[in-house]
């Protein structure tokens, strides 16, 4: 897949001296859903604000479909829709007026049929004549998405789209994002909810303290970083792990009632067969066993954890 957005050596130092981004390089591919994952203050919002033209970069460059975001800003911005994190809307305007305004602002000719479709898709059609201040929080968030989609962008940035929304709305949002991707829109979303990235992203970028720590296909990431744990429920509790089993680095938990073996799924030999053989030889019997795969959350926590 070809790269639609290229971010090269991008840095941002705010007037306060705070370094929000430190030499970020990132390629975003046409048609994908990329989740930028990172704790609060990691630089996610700064990164997308620069691409959208709201924040000036201190250093580095960004191209969108081969066009520079500074010198060719008209071309690049017309391709992009942005849904901000905060519910920043007017108050007295009607839903219809504000979405129509957004379309015009992005240089598109009025197209009531398209606005009607967007409002319909976001379940806002019934509210088209309502003033924005009459809408609920969830509706306002959908309205911001409608505004961002009003000019038929090829790229959609969603900054924390599900921060503070209820479970139902969150699922609606995910479905909407998938539908949009299906229609050919490239989607970049920032989130600090790992399950969100796990649920909908094709690729995951982890950003922390202004640096991209890694970018990887989600499936690949989970396969590579993912470790499996084999939990053995012992028939009789033991007080310590027999010395012959030391090489397996077993953890004895649950008051001596469980043995946990962590292994790498990527290697050819996981060591399970020999472990079970050794346990049998040591006379340790077990009544049950189970395996679990580590989640993206555990991978993430490992990645951003401070080195001790």
């Amino acid at each position: 897949m070809r790269s639609l957005i290229s971010i090269n050596n991008l840095s941002k130092t705010y007037a306060s001296g705070f370094k929000a981004l430190k030499g970020v390089n990132l390629d975003i591919r046409q048609g994908e859903i990329l989740a930028l994952l990172g704790p609060n203050g990691a630089g996610k919002t700064t990164l997308i604000s620069i691409v959208c033209g709201i924040v000036n970069p201190s250093q580095g460059s960004v191209t969108v479909d081969g066009h520079d975001i500074v010198s060719d800003y008209r071309l690049t911005r017309a391709m992009i829709g942005l849904v901000p994190q905060e519910l920043t809307t007017e108050a007295f305007e009607t839903v219809w007026d504000t979405v129509t305004f957004s379309r015009g602002l992005f240089g598109k000719k009025a197209d009531p049929a398209h606005i009607e479709k967007v409002l319909g898709d976001l379940s806002l059609w019934d509210k088209r004549d309502s003033q924005i201040m009459e809408l609920s929080g969830g509706m306002k968030r959908r309205l911001l998405i409608a505004k961002a989609l009003s000019h038929e962008p090829r790229i959609l940035f969603l900054d924390e789209p599900t921060a503070g929304v209820d479970v139902e709305l969150r699922k609606d949002m995910w479905r909407l994002i998938r539908d949009l991707r299906h229609s050919g829109v490239t989607i970049i979303l920032t989130t600090h909810y790992i399950d969100e990235a796990e649920e909908i992203a094709d690729r995951v970028g982890v950003i922390n303290k202004g640096e991209i720590i890694l970018v990887e296909e989600k499936a690949e990431l989970m396969r590579k970083m993912g470790r499996k744990r084999l939990t053995l429920e012992l028939l009789e509790k033991i007080s310590s792990v027999p010395s012959k089993l030391q090489p397996y680095n077993l953890d004895l938990v649950a008051d001596g009632g469980q043995l946990i073996y962590t292994y790498d799924t990527q290697t050819d030999r996981t060591g399970i067969t020999s472990l079970l053989g050794e346990l049998h030889a040591a006379g340790i019997r077990f009544r049950d066993l189970s395996t679990t795969q580590s989640s993206l959350e555990e991978i993430f926590v490992d990645l951003v954890r401070e080195p001790e």
Binding site: C52, R74, L75, T76, R77, A78, T89, E90, G107
Partner: peptide, 17 residues
Amino acid sequence: FPKFIGSIFELLSAPVS
């Protein structure tokens, strides 16, 4: 007012001079 309520982001991100 857009600056105050934050909706100025849209103006800044739009392809307008």
